[in-house]
Design a binder for these strands. Structure first.
Length: 561
RNA sequence: GCGCCUGUAGCUCAGGGGAUAGAGCGCCGGCCUCCGGAGCCGGGUGCACAGGUUCGAUUCCUGUCAGGCGCACCA
């Protein structure tokens, strides 16, 4: 399903192709191959509704000046074209198409009829994509970087879903390896301390207050029986308890943020099931492994990576990289057509070797797409906010949601592109005023809902779309709004192609602005019933677009504020 | 030293091989007998610098400068 804009663009493209053929047929142009021309919406209004650069791409082949070619193409344009008022040559050889402004009005009944399905497109064609995001270590709380990843990943997943992909949201739990060792030692030290014994948290352990709280709860639940237990048992018991609690807290924190996963994937399970070993063996069979200094190395340098990487340490324990290779191998074994990872920019060095490993295993490295997300700096009162007092970490997701609310937090993370370093202004996000872009958009939605409440109070309702005379909409503000609503399906497709949720954030903000401008100049409910009905259809279509767009961002569309 | 990301308006950021580069915030000035003023309207000497490719570069390429982040038998 494509929108009216796409339809019109295709019509014009075909018309241009036909005109070229006709001109060649008539001998006005020499035979030419149709180049890669575009029909696009010009920036400037005066340049029409659409423009094409076709004539500017032909001079070499046709041995004529671009403007001359454009003239010839215009002469050969098909006679009757719906909505076309005039086409003209402009600038260095553009052909500008000026349409009857009412051509976009078709989008309104379409939006109203399709409701939540308006803006769903078929670009993905049902192919399967996995989006893995956050995947924070289960040894602490979620911080601002994780929060950005959560907002971004969830929104990308939603957008891909709207674009016709079959989406799986996945969280990789790093519940194995060195950091779990350190975690265990930290827990043990806190356990001893809380029970009055001398102990020190290791240098590279976890120093947050939340770990102390966890151990305190463990003692409340289980007492001090581990003091005298055998060490392995003590460590295992503490880790098992703490991992469960931390993972639970992470799940809850994300759920409160509106993020829900399809799969929680345990790293430990890869070790337990022998998948890590299997991945290493497969690399060995394919000749990409060698031994040096007692360790097993992956020949990453065969795949354009600077250095080779250790897979199995001298002590026989596989590295994180080995497990990650096994994990990604597993992703492809599960049959995903496209695998998307969202990583913090500090992991960018990991990208080439991961892709190299996939290539070494015989998978298409292009099917693995890593989105590198730049870091977040929190600002309040014009100052950088450093640490959370409670946890010793950067401000946690939970604190953020308490502070600014879920909608503002999500919108703020989404409104910047992933590769922009994000300065998060807490004061602005917190302000319930016209400064705050998220309220601006939500207000537009609430305002429309209010119109319909008014309507209901008068005992009126919106008639079926086919009984509404859309041609009554001819004010500039009405047509500008309708024009932008018609763009929505393409905006979704574009956001999906570019994996760029911030496009949707800006789009809904713009639609909200157009709605407010319209609302301020024209009344929707008036004594003129026919005109009222047309305008009601317009604002209902706007409501649909705002709600759907905000939905892709994980932001609520409230009926009242 | 090598690699990745980023340099666009006072600030935070979009955009992008084309015809007059945008938004929000801040600042100034206007708009409510009327559907929600959390709104609207008006006010703008800005693409880090230098080369190159192109009919055309702010966009692509190279270099320089600046900021961030990486370069472990950590993850």
């Amino acid at each position: 399903m494509t929108g009216v804009v796409d339809k019109m663009r295709n019509n014009l493209r075909q018309a241009m192709a036909a005109a070229t053929a006709a001109a060649v047929e008539a001998g006005q142009l020499p035979p030419v191959d149709l180049p890669e021309y575009v029909v696009e919406v010009p920036r400037e209004r005066e340049h029409g509704d659409f423009a094409t650069n076709l004539a500017m791409l032909l001079p070499r082949q046709a041995r004529m000046a671009p403007r001359k070619i454009a003239e010839i193409l215009l002469e050969n344009l098909p006679r009757s074209m719906q909505w076309l008022e005039r086409a003209e040559v402009a600038g260095p050889g553009f052909i500008n198409f000026h349409l009857d402004p009412r051509w976009v009005l078709e989008a309104l009944p379409e939006a109203v009829a399709r409701q939540s399905a308006y803006g769903r497109v078929e670009a993905g064609k049902g192919r399967r994509v996995q989006v893995e995001f956050v995947s924070a270590n289960p040894t602490g709380l979620l911080h601002m970087g994780n929060a950005r990843g959560a907002a971004l990943g969830d929104s990308i997943a939603s957008i891909l879903d709207a674009a016709g992909w079959q989406v799986t949201r996945e969280y990789y739990i790093n519940d194995a390896g060195n950091q779990i060792e350190n975690f265990a030692l930290t827990l043990e030290a806190r356990y001893f301390q809380l029970l009055g014994r001398e102990a020190e948290v290791p240098e590279n352990g976890y120093h947050g207050q939340d770990i102390v709280d966890t151990v305190r709860r463990f003692i409340e639940d289980n007492g001090d029986g581990l003091l005298e237990a055998d060490r392995a048992k003590r460590l295992n018991t503490l880790v098992e308890y703490a991992l469960k609690e931390k993972t639970g807290a992470i799940k809850k924190g994300l759920a409160d943020f509106g993020v829900h996963y399809d799969v929680w994937f345990s790293e430990q399970s890869l070790h337990d099931s022998g998948k890590v070993e299997e991945a290493v063996n497969r690399l060995r069979e394919r000749g990409h492994i060698y031994e040096k200094d007692g360790a097993l190395w992956f020949k990453a340098s065969s795949f354009g990576v600077e250095k080779d990487e250790v897979l199995v340490r001298k002590n026989g324990i596989p590295t994180y990289f080995a497990a990650d290779i096994a994990y990604h191998m597993n992703k492809f074994e599960r049959g995903f057509d496209w695998v998307i990872n969202i990583w913090g920019a500090d992991h960018h060095g990991h990208v080439p070797r991961m892709k190299g490993a996939m290539e070494a295993l015989g998978y298409n490295p292009e099917a693995l797409h890593v989105i590198l997300m730049q870091l977040v700096r929190l600002f309040s009162g014009g100052e950088i906010v450093r640490m959370s007092k409670r946890t010793g970490q950067f401000v946690t997701l939970e604190e953020l949601v308490d502070e600014v609310g879920r909608d503002a937090a999500r919108y703020f993370f989404i409104m910047r592109s992933a590769d922009s370093h994000l300065d998060f202004d807490l004061d602005l996000a917190r302000s319930q005023s016209n400064d705050n872009p998220v309220y601006y958009v939500q207000y537009a939605h609430a305002r429309i809902c209010s119109i319909f409440r008014q309507l209901a109070e008068q005992g009126r309702s919106i008639p079926p779309a086919d009984r509404v005379d859309l041609r009554l909409l001819k004010e500039e503000a009405e047509l500008a709004l309708a024009r932008r609503l018609a763009d929505y399906p393409e905006e979704v497709a574009m956001a999906a192609r570019q994996l760029a949720p911030h496009r949707i954030a800006r789009y809904v903000h713009e639609v909200a602005g157009l709605l407010h401008s319209f609302y301020n100049v024209h009344r929707v409910i008036t004594g003129d019933v026919e005109l009222s009905n047309a305008r009601l259809l317009l604002v209902e279509a706007t409501r649909v677009v705002l709600r759907n767009g905000l939905g892709l961002l994980g932001v609520n569309a409230p009926e009242k504020m």
